[in-house]
Write a protein that binds this DNA or RNA. Sequence first.
RNA 1: GCCGAUGUAGCUCAGGGGUAGAGCAGCUGAUUUGUAAUCAGCAGGUCGUCGGUUCGACUCCGACCAUCGGCUCCA
Length: 647
Amino acid sequence: MTEISVTFEDGAVERVPAGTEAGEAIRRHAERDGAGRRRAARPVAARLDADGSTVVDLTRPLVRDCRLTPVAADSRDGLDVVRHSAAHLMAQAVKRLFPETQITIGPVIENGFYYDFKRPDGFASEDLPRIEEMMRAIVAEDLPVRREEVPRDEAVRRFREMGEHYKVEIIEGIPEDTVSLYHQGEFVDLCRGPHVPSTGCIPAFRLTSVAGAYWRGDARNEQLQRIYGTAWASEQELEAYLKRLEEAKQRDHRRLGQVLDLFSLHPISPGSPFFHPKGAVVYNTLVEYIRGLYARYGYTEVITPLVYKTELWKTSGHYDAFRDDMFLMTIEDDEYGVKPMNCPGHCYLFATRKHSYRDLPVRYADFSRLHRFEPSGTLAGLVRVRSMAQDDAHIYCTPQQLDDELERFIAMTREVYGAFGFDRVEVTLQTRPEKFLGRLELWNAAEAALRRALEQAGYAVTVLEGQGAFYGPKIGFDFRDVLERSWTLATVQIDCAMPERFGLRYVTAEGTEATPVMLHRAVLGSLERFIAILVEHTAGRLPLWLAPVQVRVLPVSEKAAAYATRVAEACTASGLRAEADLRNEKLGYKVREAQVEKVPVIAVVGEREAAANTVAPRGDGAPQAAVPLEAFVARVAGEARRPGGVA
RNA sequence: GCCGAUGUAGCUCAGGGGUAGAGCAGCUGAUUUGUAAUCAGCAGGUCGUCGGUUCGACUCCGACCAUCGGCUCCA
């Protein structure tokens, strides 16, 4: 029998007969290197370098010389394998408990996996513990997992016999002539693999939720039942993950929004937040901040109607695309709508007078409230609402000014992200979708301009083909928060349709008329969503300049009440949002409450401070030495200055 | 909109076919407090809404509404 050489990471070379399984080769190597065996966790798969760096089953026969690296369960690749195998494990358990169920697909996702099933009665949450129990039983059986390669027609025939019609459909769509199947006990699934060598190698998992999902992700197709699960290399890691989820819940803006008394939602207007006084402070302070920047970046603010005849959106093209998602009403035989966006209104505003190239660029900023009839099932806190406002603006300029305008916008975005300390930003370029308005050459020029601007700004860009708006391509600035979620905040879009559809013109230097270039742009995006993201990112500890209450003065007893009031007034006189907590409570109680409400500056005053005209600040959870009142006010007022002011 | 779950006092939650309970918050009083919860008393609920079953429904059934987790969508 011919022998082959298997080279390991440590340089050791193992001579084994051709056809030896990868797992066997790893075992031999580990036996020779006792320390290594102790060091390396039990592998769940192997990386076969000579074969295109692919991760393969431990049961894969080695046929030629190769480099082989064990893949441990707790490695990135290993977790993928474990999770994929957990998905198969779940499908097997489901088939045992509910044989009438058809299996479809079951991929790995971040932190876990899911499997989509077709079952006439669907699944209830109570089914999950039963399925989990069966999964544990199958783990205990430690069934070997076996890979089999079969001709595609053969696979189709077998799955058809099993009544797995979705699998048949999937296999029929595979171009290759041979497909791989994975067996474990009585269960067989179409799969590329790799998988763990046996069902006993799936260390820790939990089923988390049931959901509906559409076959092939298309709402026109029938609905399947999706079961989500999470799987880890050990029980400890599973527990740690579940704990992280709990902690994320503590930062949820819906919870904090209540604790901090920022906003509430009421069934009387679903998806339309009520901003409480404190929430309104945050909201308005953000608007004032952006207004301050507009003064420097050359925007002019406008105020435009909330309600228009629908003719407006028939012209813009929105009516066709979004009619069902608008608040519409008929009055005196005319159909009206509440505006879901500002752009068409701004086009009318632009057309109220004749423009010269000398007027351009025109930059209309608008903080109007917008209303969109978002489907009921999609509403979520401040993140997905029916009533919202953006730091919206539309720029009309000449083609020659376009590059400068894009550069100016990127500069403003950078300034804002810098002010919030958002340093993890990814940029996407979203190109022409299948359904689009406007001329192709405009689209091509617009996409080129956006590319140019991003290159100029030095961004590494991810291109999302076909993800642009129907009227133009866009750039998205995605911010990744502390919970590793990505949010598109700023966006700029070049409009390839509206200027022509609204017949917008300006007079050129040559005395001829031309169509202006139109940009749509926002930096914060929706104020509602921005507030939600900021609250979660900061765990409710908003930056001082945004905090609804910046200073709370706590008198030690009633004897210091008058002085506490004086301190709060001194703060207010310096432009700070300050209040004195004069309630008849012990100091510890008031401190606790101020901490829970995340008031950034706590100032304790007792008889000592009153006598010395000082305050005792409480920084990061600990009391500090008393400082003179004036110095305290000056320091806090300085730190609370809104960013972006003219120096 | 679709699938699954939840809905009891302002908030967090317990209860269960015979017409509701706690803690916190609120109010009143006592306490005058030195850095994360002082004590006592009082008050507070058509048990999400509507309909059905029942002698009787907050509890069982149905529809609807809202919220949560997903799917689709997101100008």
